[in-house]
Design a binder for these strands. Sequence first.
RNA 1: GCGCCUGUAGCUCAAUUGGAUAGAGCGCUUGGCUACGGACCAGGAGGCUGGGAGUUCAAAUCUUCCCAGGCGCGCCA
Length: 551
Amino acid sequence: MQFESSLINLILDALKIITPDVKIKPEDIIISSSEDPSRGDFSTNCALKLSKLFSLPPMDLGQKIVDIVLSKKPAFLDSVKLVSPGFINLFLSAKAFQGKLLEFLENSKDYLSPNIGNGKKVLLEFLSANPTGPLTIAHGRHAACGDTLANILKAAGYKVTREYYYNDSGRQMDILGSSLHVRYLQLLGERKRMFKEGYSGYYLQEIARKMIEKHRKAYSKEKNLSIFTRFAEKEILKDIKEVLSLFRIKFGSWIKETRFTRGAKVKKLLAYLKEKEETYEKDGALWFKSTKYNDAKDRVLVKSTGELTYLVPDLAYHKFKYERGYDRIITILGPDHHGYIQRLMAGIKAMGLDDTKFTTKILQVVSLYRGKKKLRMSTRAGEFVTLRKVIDEVGVDAAHFFLCMRGMDAPLDFDLELAKKESAENPVYYIQYAHARICSVFKFARQKGFAIDKLKNINLGIINRKEEIELLKKILGYSGVIKRGAEVLETQGLTAYLLELASLFHQYYNKYRFITDDDDITKARLLLAQAVRIILSHGLKLLGIKSLKKM
RNA sequence: GCGCCUGUAGCUCAAUUGGAUAGAGCGCUUGGCUACGGACCAGGAGGCUGGGAGUUCAAAUCUUCCCAGGCGCGCCA
């Protein structure tokens, strides 16, 4: 069991003694680890928070809690101190920490995975780039963050499905097909110019070349351009999947929009909304009363031409998400979609679905720099650095780390030149180096006759130096980081934590030796290093980064 | 104009979601390699958290008004 749980129970018991009839839940007691040693190992603000409920001044309530806790003298506590304005600082014994190290090594799973998910099913939709061009660095951020978030959720005990939804029809896809058509005819020698809205990127020329290789002139007189759309879609998706595979990311589910544009599903959905009086007709179009659900304005569902708007298949898609029985449905969207969320939410409510299961996260933009120069990006104009190129330049590991390093709602500056120039001092190398260093220590230890997996009769009482306790505290804090990441749906807590852990390890390494003349000390310290290694490796894996034995 | 996001050290960003003295990295600067890997470590300088008012034991965090930047506001997708 984690220290926090034991401490919460301790406080709860004390509160029960003070006033038996006041009901306090474990969630009401917040135990936080202290960064300043003078404030103990952990502290709680419960006396401040609960002072009104108990109608006692914080210091008085705090004193009562402290008195009761002290009277019990639990073995793992050294001392308890009340500090103005009402914080209670808890000092744990070194022995308590030593015991946890042993527990960690014997059953590390419990300390790596907080299990707040309880096997609940989560659908995480992310990336969902339409197949109109190669993936860019912005897509890379969606891919890296989404994937790591899925890993964190899984580590926290959820069952996660990664889903990719894309448009394979509609105006943009038509333009894509027409653009390929132009390139195709150009390559066959026709004098034809790319139209204004067309996709003029180089990749369509390559795809046109492939089409000629495969079909020669067969489609030179073709009037139905959907042949071209399908061909482009297929090639671009192939490229996207290839890059994702390079980027070590795998989706469990790929969903096409056309699945929801045809057949009975749409008719049924529209009929349902009509019956529930969520719609009305105006100017020959069918409107959705989304303002009923806090949308800024009502939205068209069926255009006066009889065509569907984007919203309709998307609503059908979200209904499909619910039909598959997920407990939570999370979608990561780009900032250009934030205006869309309200109407989607409105639709979910109008369809009678449980909107509390549904969460959207907006992932902010990435600006790519080469030194001071900002690189402009436009898929249509074909001006961009592809994700593939970025991976080539800075490597998969560094790319993953940098893209997961910032909060989702903070815009990210990604400087290629800096990433290359600094590659020797990259944070990701700093962490990987800590891991490699530990492996190297183990190798040396083995030569001296200490095999890490065969250590027995360890006297962990030797682990009692300030730096060692600090490392242990950090180690034990890992599952809390995972828990929090799963709660707030962020990746950057994990990257920050791993940097801190690596830093503590490097500090320790520089100050103390692992292999010493004293066998007991050697063994105990090797076990400490092993715990650090297990966490580094686990955390890096969640980030899609390799743990290296040698660098 | 309306809506969303952002504003913290020279730069890029944190801050246990309202906690105690606001922290890292880069850059700048002073030091440290005859033992497990120097891709490392120890120290220093650098702040009115964009500005004002409010809420309370406690505000970078919440409310409100300004200022600055980004994005969105189609019978596009």
